[in-house]
Design a protein around this nucleic acid. Structure first.
Length: 565
RNA sequence: UGGGGCGUCGCCAAAUGGUAAGGCAGCGGCCUUUGGAGCCGCCAUUUGUAGGUUCGAGUCCUACCGCCCCAGCCA
C-alpha cells in the first residue's frame, strides 16, 4: 500500500478503521454503502439503535448511503403493522434512508433465479428429508454429519423438483432446497444448509404469490450484493455464517461481493433485548405493550420522554467493539439527562401535595416571574401565580428533621422558588396525627427570593398555588427488572420472577403549575427538583398523564439513604 | 471435548513495539434562588495467568485459564 493510500484510523472503532482503509485504498471504487436490515416481527429497541447509528453513521461519514431493507423472508412471523412501527421509529430516531427503501421480498423472483443457477451448477439439491431427519443427520459439535440420501440427485431432477416446490406441489416441510457444501464441516452452518423451505402462508407483501421462501443465509448475502452494499455490518452471532455468506456469493455470478463485518450487540442492564422475551412480557400483561415506557423499545423510550438525540449520543458514546458488553442503565440515563438539561423547559409540579396557608399573605393573588431554562437564556421567562394557599411537596417538610435536612420544619425558614421566604409557624394534624396542613408566615421583603438584609436560607422549595393548580396523574417508573441480568435465573426459576414490582407507580392527584395545562402531548419538561417528565401520548386535556423520564441526580437521596443504612 | 469469537479499572472503551486516553459510576471539595446544572480533585506501577523474544511488550511468540456464540425448514 502506498503512503497516499493509508487512512488515518487513530481513535476510530475497528469498523470505521476498516471502512476508512477501504475508502483510502479505493476498494469498492471508494464507495460506502451500508444497510440496516430489520425483520418486521417486533418493535425496534435500543440495541437496534446502536446498529442503526453505526450503519447510517459510517455511510454518512464517507458521503455514502445506508439502505433500509426489511428482511421479510419468513411470513410466519412478520406483519405489516411492524413495518409501519419500524418506519416511524427510524424517522423519530432521526435517520433518513431517502429513496433507498427495500424489502427482501422484492427480490423473491431474482432470488429464485439465483437458486436455479445454483442448482444448475450442481451446488444445491432438493432434499426430501423431514425436519427431524435433517436434524438427526446434522451430526454434533464433535461428530461429522451424514449426507442426505438425496444429495446426489441429478441437476435435471433437482431443477424439476425445485420448480414443483415453487408450483406448490409439496406441502410444508416435505421438500427443502439445500446447498451442497460439506456435511463434515466443523462449522455447523456449512453442513448442507437449507436455502429454501415450503411455507404455504400468505406474505404481508407478496400475498399468495409464493409458497417457497428463502432463508436468511440465502436471501441476505444476495440482497446485499444486488443492492451494491460494500460493508454489511451485523452482530457477532453471525460470525459463523460469514463462511456461508461468502460461499453463496462465490458460487454465483453476482454484482459484487460485500464484506460482512461483525460487532458486539448492545446489552443494557436491568432489561432484556430479546424480541421473544419482550413479546412474552407483553403477552403476560406485565406492560401495556411494545411502547410501554418501561420497555427498552424505541417506541417505549419515546413515550417515556427520552429524546432521540440522547439515544444517538448514548449509542455513539458506548462505542463499537467485539467484546460482549452490558451497559449500565445509569449511562443511558446520563445521556438522557444531559440532553434534557440543555433543552427541557422548567416548571413546578407538586407530586405529593401538602397544603400550606400563608397566614399573613393577603387574599389577592399575584404573579411572579420564573426562568424557563437557566441553561438556555433564549427560553425566556414566564409568570407563575402565587396565592395565600399553596401546595408544597410532602417530602419537603419534616416535623423532626435530621441534621442535614435543609427543607421546611417547624420554626424553619426556607425559600419558595421565585417567590418568598416562608417560616413554618404551626403544624396542623388530623385525628390520626397525620400532618394535613402547615401554617406559615412570609416575609414580603423577600419577593422574588432574595432577602434585602442578606440573610440566607439553606433550602429552596417548589410550590404550586392551590387555586391555580392543574390536576394530573404522574407515573413514576423504575427499571423493568430488579436485577442487572434478568436472564440469569436460578434452577427452577423464571426470568419473570425478576420483574420489578415497583416498576410503575401512579400518582393520581398531582398539582402542576398552570403553564403545564398548555403542554403538548410528547413535550418534555423538567419539573424542578424532581426530574424530567413527558406528557404521555395517550393523555387528554381532561385527564393529563405525565411520565417521568428520569429523575434529577439527587444528592439528598444519597445522604438520606446512607442515614438509613 | 469440534469450530468460531473475546479477555485493558465496578460498567463501557482508547492505546497500531516507545513506557496504560476518555466517558459512566463512585468518593472528596467549591459554587448554587433546582440538594439540579457547573467547576476542582481522587479513582489501573499495570492489561486473564505463566513463561519467552526485545534496549523496550497491553501490543510479538508459546502454553494454560476464563467467558460468549453455533447442532431452527428463525433472523
Amino acid at each position: 500500500m502506498g503512503l497516499e493510500d493509508q487512512a488515518e484510523t487513530a481513535g476510530l472503532d475497528f469498523i470505521r478503521s476498516i471502512v476508512a482503509t477501504d475508502v483510502a485504498s479505493g476498494k469498492h471504487g471508494g464507495a460506502v454503502v451500508t444497510r440496516f436490515p430489520p425483520e418486521p416481527s417486533g418493535h425496534l429497541h435500543i440495541g437496534h439503535a446502536k446498529a442503526i447509528c453505526l450503519d447510517f453513521g459510517v455511510a454518512a461519514e464517507h458521503g455514502g448511503r445506508c439502505h433500509l431493507r426489511f428482511d421479510d423472508t419468513n411470513p410466519t412471523r412478520e406483519e405489516g403493522e411492524f413495518v409501519e412501527a419500524i418506519l416511524r421509529d427510524l424517522r423519530w430516531l432521526g435517520f433518513d434512508w431517502g429513496e433507498y427503501l427495500y424489502y427482501a421480498s422484492d427480490y423473491f423472483e431474482r432470488l429464485y433465479d439465483y437458486a436455479v443457477e445454483l442448482v444448475g451448477r450442481g451446488k444445491a439439491f432438493v432434499c426430501d428429508l423431514s425436519s427431524e431427519e435433517i436434524a438427526a443427520r446434522r451430526g454434533t459439535l464433535t461428530e461429522a454429519g451424514t449426507p442426505s440420501p438425496f444429495r446426489e440427485r441429478s441437476v435435471e431432477e433437482n431443477l424439476d423438483l425445485f420448480a414443483r416446490m415453487k408450483a406448490g406441489e409439496f406441502e410444508n416441510g416435505e421438500r427443502t432446497l439445500r446447498a451442497r457444501i460439506d456435511m463434515a464441516s466443523p462449522n455447523l452452518v456449512m453442513r448442507d444448509p437449507i436455502l429454501y423451505r415450503v411455507h404455504k402462508v400468505p406474505h404481508h407483501r407478496t400475498g399468495e404469490q409464493w409458497c417457497i421462501y428463502p432463508l436468511y443465509d440465502f436471501a441476505h448475502c444476495l440482497s446485499d450484493s444486488v443492492e451494491g452494499i460494500t460493508h454489511s455490518l451485523c452482530s457477532l452471532e453471525f460470525v459463523d455464517r460469514r463462511a456461508l455468506y461468502d460461499w453463496i456469493l462465490d458460487a454465483l455470478e453476482t454484482p459484487c461481493h460485500p464484506q460482512q463485518i461483525e460487532f458486539a450487540r448492545l446489552n443494557l442492564s436491568h432489561t432484556v433485548m430479546s424480541k421473544r422475551v419482550l413479546r412474552e412480557i407483553i403477552e403476560a400483561g406485565h406492560v401495556e405493550g411494545w411502547d410501554d415506557p418501561r420497555m427498552p423499545t424505541l417506541s417505549g423510550m419515546r413515550r417515556r420522554g427520552y429524546p432521540p438525540a440522547a439515544l444517538r449520543s448514548f449509542c455513539e458514546g458506548v462505542g463499537v467493539a467485539k467484546r460482549a458488553n452490558t451497559i449500565e442503565m445509569a449511562r443511558l440515563e446520563h445521556s438522557v439527562r444531559e440532553e434534557l438539561n440543555r433543552t427541557a423547559p422548567r416548571a413546578m409540579a407538586v407530586l405529593d401535595p401538602l397544603r400550606v396557608v400563608i397566614e399573613n399573605y393577603p387574599e389577592e393573588d399575584e404573579e411572579l416571574e420564573a426562568v424557563n431554562n437557566p441553561e438556555d437564556p433564549s427560553a425566556g421567562t414566564r409568570r407563575v401565580p402565587f396565592s395565600r394557599e399553596l401546595f408544597i411537596e410532602r417530602a419537603d417538610f419534616m416535623e423532626d428533621p435530621p441534621k442535614k435536612f435543609f427543607r421546611l420544619a417547624p420554626g424553619r425558614e426556607v425559600r419558595l422558588r421565585y417567590a418568598y421566604f416562608i417560616t413554618c409557624e404551626e403544624v396542623v394534624k388530623d385525628a390520626e396525627g397525620h400532618v394535613v396542613e402547615l401554617r406559615c408566615r412570609y416575609d414580603p421583603a423577600t419577593r422574588g427570593g432574595d432577602a434585602p438584609d442578606g440573610r440566607k436560607v439553606k433550602g429552596t422549595l417548589h410550590w404550586v398555588s392551590q387555586r391555580h393548580a392543574v390536576r394530573a396523574e404522574v407515573r413514576l417508573y423504575e427499571t423493568l427488572f430488579e436485577v442487572e441480568d434478568p436472564m440469569d435465573v436460578p434452577e427452577g426459576g423464571h426470568f419473570l420472577d425478576h420483574l420489578n414490582p415497583d416498576s410503575l407507580r401512579r400518582l393520581e392527584d398531582c398539582a402542576l403549575e398552570p403553564a403545564l395545562a398548555a403542554a403538548e402531548v410528547g413535550s418534555r419538561w423538567q419539573f424542578e427538583r424532581q426530574g424530567y417528565f413527558c406528557l404521555d401520548g395517550r393523555s387528554t386535556p381532561e385527564a393529563p398523564v405525565w411520565n417521568r423520564s428520569v429523575t434529577l441526580r439527587d444528592s439528598w437521596a444519597k445522604v438520606s439513604g446512607k442515614r438509613k443504612g
